[in-house]
Design a protein around this nucleic acid. Structure first.
Lengths: 151, 151
DNA sequence: AAATATTGACAACTAAATTGTCAAAAGTAA
DNA sequence: TTACTTTTGACAATTTAGTTGTCAATATTT
């Protein structure tokens, strides 16, 4: 596997696992007619957050326009509903509807079966440590992330 | 962050980190005119492996045709060279040229500076544990991966 | 030798996301 | 309140990273 440093190998594994994970997730997502972006949006709003389109885009770190389309579709399909935004009259907040909430629960239930498989041979302690490590990496990166991302 | 289970959060973080990592890597990759797939191929061959196109595709778990194009380009650019394949007369093995080897070293050098940043606050022990965990997940998944992937 | 499978090449297509542009509306400052 | 600046939503074109389909040539298997 030629990784001189454990640090390097961690990043390599993140890349490999992402692909594997995506393929796995797609099976259950496609059954519901959802894309990965749809899923990410539901995830950001679950269980009861209310965010505007630009806010979701900033968290997902993708373009505002992309999330706009995704959110519009999810609203049409009845999984999201808009609410007035006290901070901005033209840019409503979006939150899960009851149906959207149920949908995401279903998705997670299906996925958790698969996850059990993946984590079957991994001690709880190691999972905790991995979570802590990845979370630290992620949060540090968030803070470093370009502060002037207007669009 | 609403992750009920640490297992779930690990997968969530893998997804988030992949994107962050890709954006970071792109900076240095674009400087060399390489795509993510180019980089992956170099990575699989580094430091001195010799694999055929179908073999690389199987490891990267993408279509044979996609890797074919990538490898052809890398050969044209002088980063890979073909060698006769003892196991298959029509499907040569590919390996890094000296230039390709140097290129990948350069890429890793640039990336390792960024990695130092990411891992600055993470104890060695935790990195090791994370590596072990992710590697276990990845290897298990490989073994499970569809055995009859003809194309 | 015949049947079967694999490989490389080419083409058309898809999914996920980016970038560019615009007008309308909102926020901000004079 | 009026003028300026920014943000937002909408639409379009493009890019990236890949898939799928097909074909002839060559290999491998029986």
């Amino acid at each position: 596997m030629h990784a001189d440093s454990p640090q390097y190998e961690v990043t390599w594994l993140v890349r490999r696992l992402f692909r594997a994970l995506a393929q796995l997730a797609n099976t259950s997502l496609q059954a519901h007619g959802l894309s990965a972006a749809d899923r990410a949006v539901l995830e950001f709003l679950y269980p009861d957050a209310a965010l505007s389109v630009p806010e979701i885009a900033a968290r997902y770190r993708v373009s505002r326009q992309h999330i706009q389309v995704t959110v519009n579709t999810l609203v049409e399909d009845g999984f999201l509903e808009s609410r007035p935004n006290p901070r901005h009259k033209r840019s409503p907040l979006f939150a899960l509807t009851r149906v959207g909430h149920e949908l995401f629960n279903k998705i997670r239930a299906a996925e958790s079966e698969m996850l059990d498989d993946w984590f079957a041979n991994i001690p709880t302690h190691d999972v905790e440590c991995t979570r802590r490590t990845l979370r630290t990496m992620y949060c540090q990166n968030l803070r470093r992330g370009d502060p002037d991302a207007s669009d």
